[in-house]
Design a protein around this nucleic acid. Structure first.
Length: 460
RNA sequence: GGCUAGGUGGCAGAGUGGUUAUGCAGCGGCCUGCAAAGCCGUGUACCUCGGUUCGACUCCGGGCCUAGCCUCCA
């Protein structure tokens, strides 16, 4: 079995063949850090983290770069509004991004380049594009010359002429061609800027990814990934810049794009004001439940977010963690291979719904297993979870995290359970039920086991 | 207007030219003082109209509907 992925460039599922199996390279467009990430921003982070895991399971070395865009007009606006410098803004939200993504089980990429650390590389790349007649200077701006790149539009399947006809924005007068886009733009005194051959300024939006990708991964990379809305113009422009600067006929061999998270079937976006902030969601829900939900639909499909779906994800995880709690030795899982059905599903264009189905099938096997087989199956369940980025907590921790919302102390709860036990032994069931109801009102669910009574915080 | 993707059981969501997805909920059973949890069992699902085929939810064509991109956006 080989890994197969859907390539936006060909609009087909293809067998993944890296340029160099000893060093697989992937780049994903990361956040622009001017605000907290919403759940739609989290989707690609989770999906491409999973891709990183799946590739790493197969290849000895995978270099995964996910950038942080820390120079951008939206950042400037946020800084101006608060009256602080941009690095106050970028540091705050980069830190929050890391914390939030960690809560979703997203591992750190191999490298996390920042645009401001690559200004020299960006300037060098622009100079090269100018010298090759792929870019020109105009009124302090440097623009990419779309006319000189015949393949422009290949990724998004757009025709340049049609794009002009359908253009809804006014074309800047200094552009030679309406489709030309900015590589470098001038900064006024009050804006962040760097000295360049074209005066003090800052990079355009697309050039940073091209420069950082080349710096860390090479001129031709295996995989470039991002959200569907980046296909045009961002990725189209990256291809144009990179190929023209390097004189290559390929920038990335495979292009992956994730679908949107929707709310009531509408795209989640800042302009619609229907964003759900990960930072906020994490105050109410376990990050792992968010991850499970994000993986419950195939990455290229839209994912409709709802509280109900989140509850379902949590219920399912409750069952899985319950099984691990009841059967699992806490032992390490690294000696056990993940369930082949799960590996196979993931290697088939990251088919996470099928992978989760197989994970649940494995759980069922565990639930039904003879006692002699339970330990092995439990370890396999955990090892399989590790590949997906799920089920890595201690079960007790999973169940314990909901206690923050509970008013009663553990001692009080234990005490009430004791009282109930005594009532039960006295066959005073009215009293026993009263105590049970009292606890239930506080969100505590009682479970009478053969040995002893346990409790946990109810799923809401 | 141009280009995409999609319409599957109560809900979410895979997949397949003829055979059980899976999860959540529901229902029946076991267990329990009664429950809960857990386990077992359980569902005549594939937008519409034509076509291809021995056979289509699955392939092809038309239609209807939904969402997205073409502008900052994951």
């Amino acid at each position: 079995m080989s890994i197969r992925i859907y390539n936006t460039l060909s609009r087909e599922k293809e067998t993944f063949v890296p340029g160099d199996p000893e060093r697989v390279t992937m780049y994903a467009c990361g956040p622009t850090v001017y605000n907290y990430a919403h759940i739609g921003n989290a989707r690609p982070a989770v999906i491409f983290d999973l891709l990183h895991r799946v590739l790493s399971n197969r290849f000895p070395k995978v270099v995964y770069a996910r950038n942080i865009t820390d120079v951008d007009d939206k950042i400037n606006a946020a800084a101006a509004q608060e009256g602080v410098s941009i690095d106050v803004i970028t540091r705050r939200y980069a830190d929050a991004y890391h914390a939030d993504m960690a809560a979703l089980g997203v591992g750190r990429p191999t490298v996390e380049p920042r645009a401001t650390d690559h200004i020299d590389a960006i300037i060098a790349m622009i100079e090269r594009l100018i010298s090759l007649d792929h870019a020109y200077e105009a009124e302090g701006h440097v623009l990419f010359n779309v006319e000189n790149f015949p393949d422009y539009g290949q990724l998004s399947r757009r025709d340049r002429r049609e794009m002009i006809a359908g253009a809804r924005v006014e074309v800047a007068p200094y552009k030679k061609h309406p489709g030309d886009f900015v590589l470098w733009k001038p900064s006024s005194e009050d804006l962040p800027g760097w000295d360049s051959p074209w005066g003090r300024g800052r990079p355009g939006w697309h050039i940073e990814c091209s420069a950082m990708s080349a710096s860390h991964l090479g001129e031709i990379i295996d995989i470039h990934a991002g959200g569907q809305d980046l296909v045009f113009p961002h990725h189209e422009n990256e291809i144009a810049q990179s190929r023209c600067a390097h004189g290559t006929d390929t920038f990335a061999r495979y292009w992956l794009h994730n679908g949107f998270v929707t709310v009531e079937k509408r795209k989640m976006s800042k302009s619609l004001g229907n964003t759900l902030i990960v930072h906020e969601l994490l105050k109410q829900w376990p990050g792992e439940a968010l991850r499970y939900l994000l993986l419950s639909a195939h990455y290229r499909q839209p994912l409709d977010w709802s509280e109900k779906a989140l509850e379902q994800a949590q219920s399912t995880l409750d069952r899985l963690y319950g099984l691990l709690r009841d059967h699992a030795p806490a032992a390490a899982s690294d000696e056990v291979a993940p369930d082949p059905a799960v590996t196979e599903a993931l290697e088939d264009d990251l088919n996470t719904p099928t992978a989760l189905a197989a994970l649940n099938g494995l759980a069922r096997q565990l639930a039904q297993a003879e006692s002699g087989e339970q330990a092995l199956l439990a370890r396999r369940l955990r090892a399989t979870g590790a590949l997906i980025g799920l089920l890595q907590q201690a079960p007790a921790d999973w169940f314990a995290q909901r206690q923050v919302a509970v008013q009663l102390s553990e001692a009080t709860i234990e005490d009430l359970i004791q009282q109930r036990q005594q009532a039960r032994q006295a066959r005073d069931f009215a009293e026993a039920d009263r105590i049970r109801d009292q606890l239930a009102d506080q969100g505590i669910v009682i479970k009478d086991g053969p040995e002893r009574t346990t409790w946990e915080v109810a799923a809401r």
